[in-house]
């Protein structure tokens, strides 16, 4: 029982990380109609900037600020210089251009920081474990990630449902041309939305630092999972991104935790472990395929 609860929390923690990435991706996708493969690069930029500042200054707050600022500024620069010219283009052109950006950012990080992974320490205040129930300790840092993720989700909900900017974002997702025709400065809105998405990606990246190692290529690994989340949730829907992220996080974590033992019942140890790892990795893609076949527009279509 305790183990199951721990795995559920691990799944939730992966889920909120995926949500932070997916929220930006789904907004950019839903509002601007851009497939941005380089979203994972912004996650990487946030992680590297924060890790570097953390080792130089030793201050967790400075690292936090640096990671967020680096990701948001990089994101807005990318939007202004490149993506702005691609809004009216084919998805194919967007894929090619953002793939080029991935190559550029990955190699840029190699030039700046080298190929060795950077290791990041957990901030002093969040080391140690919290006793959730008698005999059930859980790392404080992971709990903090879950809390931050849920807070961001609540904040996004308020921003999108309760503010004028959010109204424009929703309107833009439903009918871009009409919003422009009503005299809204849609270019500024686009840059802001993209910057917000980049900021959230950077937040995910800097929080991931102490859990995964910070290295070149970290963005692409999680990017594909993020796409799975966005498609399962319904493109353009932030609510769908949250549901999809938690679902994907839970499915992935639970399969990884329980499949090896289940397979060891019918197969040899090492073979069972290898097969279980493979099947567990396939799980989320299988989930996505099933969702798409049953509900082609995702679980929460943004505009029906």
């Amino acid at each position: 029982m305790g183990l199951l609860l721990e795995q559920l929390l691990n799944g939730l923690q992966l889920g909120v990380m995926l949500f932070l990435l997916a929220a930006g991706l789904t907004l950019v996708f839903g509002i601007m109609g851009v497939i941005n493969l380089a979203h994972g690069s912004l996650y990487m930029v946030g992680a590297f900037a924060s890790a570097w500042v953390a080792t130089k200054t030793g201050s967790a707050l400075a690292a936090l600020a640096a990671g967020l600022a680096a990701a948001a500024l990089t994101g807005m620069a990318v939007e202004l210089l490149v993506l702005r010219r691609l809004y009216a283009r084919d998805h194919l052109d967007q894929v090619l251009a953002t793939f080029g950006l991935i190559l550029f950012f990955n190699q840029g990080m190699v030039l700046l920081f080298g190929r060795q992974p950077l290791f990041v320490e957990i901030p002093a205040a969040l080391r140690g474990a919290v006793e959730l129930a008698p005999g059930l300790p859980y790392p404080a840092y992971r709990l903090a990630i879950i809390a931050v993720g849920l807070l961001v989700a609540a904040g996004l909900y308020l921003l999108i449902q309760r503010t004028r900017t959010g109204m424009l974002v929703r309107a833009g997702a439903t009918h871009r041309e009409m919003v422009r025709a009503l005299g809204v400065d849609i270019r500024l809105l686009y840059t802001l939305v993209f910057g917000l998405g980049a900021l959230l990606a950077g937040l995910a990246g800097l929080m991931a630092g102490p859990i995964f190692s910070v290295q070149v290529g970290m963005g692409e690994q999680i990017l594909i999972m993020t796409f799975v989340v966005v498609v399962i949730g319904g493109i353009g829907s932030v609510r769908g991104a949250l549901a999809g992220a938690v679902l994907v996080g839970l499915v992935d974590t639970l399969l990884r935790a329980y499949l090896p033992a289940a397979l060891r019942g019918v197969m040899q140890g090492p073979d069972a472990d290898a097969l279980a790892a493979g099947l567990a990795s396939m799980g989320v893609y299988l989930l996505m395929a099933v969702v798409l076949l049953l509900r082609p527009r995702g679980l929460f279509p943004a505009h029906a």
């Binding site: 796409f227 493979g278 099947l279 893609y285």
Partner: peptide, 23 residues
């Protein structure tokens, strides 16, 4: 549309992980 792009990706990823796990 985009769903087609993603579902073909999903199937390819499944095969990728299948071959990774075939010792």
């Amino acid at each position: 549309g985009v769903q087609f792009i993603m579902i073909t990706l999903a199937f390819a990823q499944m095969l990728f992980f299948l071959f990774v796990s075939l010792k």
